[in-house]
Design a protein around this nucleic acid. Structure first.
Lengths: 110, 110
DNA sequence: TAACAATATGCTAATATGACCATATTGTCA
DNA sequence: TGACAATATGGTCATATTAGCATATTGTTA
């Protein structure tokens, strides 16, 4: 197995493994937005949003476009939908699993 | 936006943002495997593999089954395919993008 | 050019993560 | 039960990541 390839892949995933960046990406799924739009939507510090935008951009996940004072950001890749689709399935299955664990422990308690 | 939800989501993604764990998941896509099978395939320390298997299991990404001395691990979620599909698209697009950057810098150099 | 608005960057301390090694646990079989 | 094989866990140190703050940069308009 080619470890370098997996390192590359994991660094891409790492970029998405951050709540602020996930919120940004989710926000951009609705279309192109300026930095201040995003700041308002996700209610975070401007400097934080800006920093995380540049991290996402460096990983090639989003792109930008300057118009006067504003910078418009948008998703580069539409397949992000499938990415999140799988995550949502995993999360809901995981919740069911944890629910089962709770139920089973209740059974053995009594 | 519900920050707690994004934290949950990012912790799930974080679990996959590690080369060793990615190798394990990829290895398990071919079917159920014992710990020592995985150790051989990905050529890592047994203790590392074991630890990362338990991290994947705790996040509900894989499941296990004990048979005598052996523990068989397998993927819980088949949608992982879509997850990786999107990543692969992003990686190849990113490579193209970086290639462009290199080409453009060559143009302006001359 | 001064004042302002939008965005980006540098620094820092707290926290999280990783690999590695030694060792523990669990199960089998003679 | 003792020896062994498969797997899991604990401790540790180096490194990575994060948010928050202050400040810098860039662009506009009067």
């Amino acid at each position: 197995m080619n470890k370098e390839f997996y390192k590359l892949k994991s660094s891409l995933i790492k970029t998405l493994a951050n709540p602020t960046r996930l919120m940004i990406v989710d926000c951009l799924r609705k279309g192109e937005k300026t930095v201040s739009d995003i700041v308002k939507t996700i209610q975070d510090e401007q400097s934080n949003v800006s920093k995380n935008l540049s991290i996402l951009k460096n990983q090639g996940i989003i792109k930008d476009r300057k118009v006067g004072l504003n910078v418009y950001y948008s998703l580069k890749c539409t397949c992000i939908k499938e990415f999140f689709g799988c995550l949502d399935v995993m999360i809901s299955e995981n919740l069911e699993y944890q629910q089962e664990l709770i139920n089973n422990s209740k059974k053995t308690e009594g």
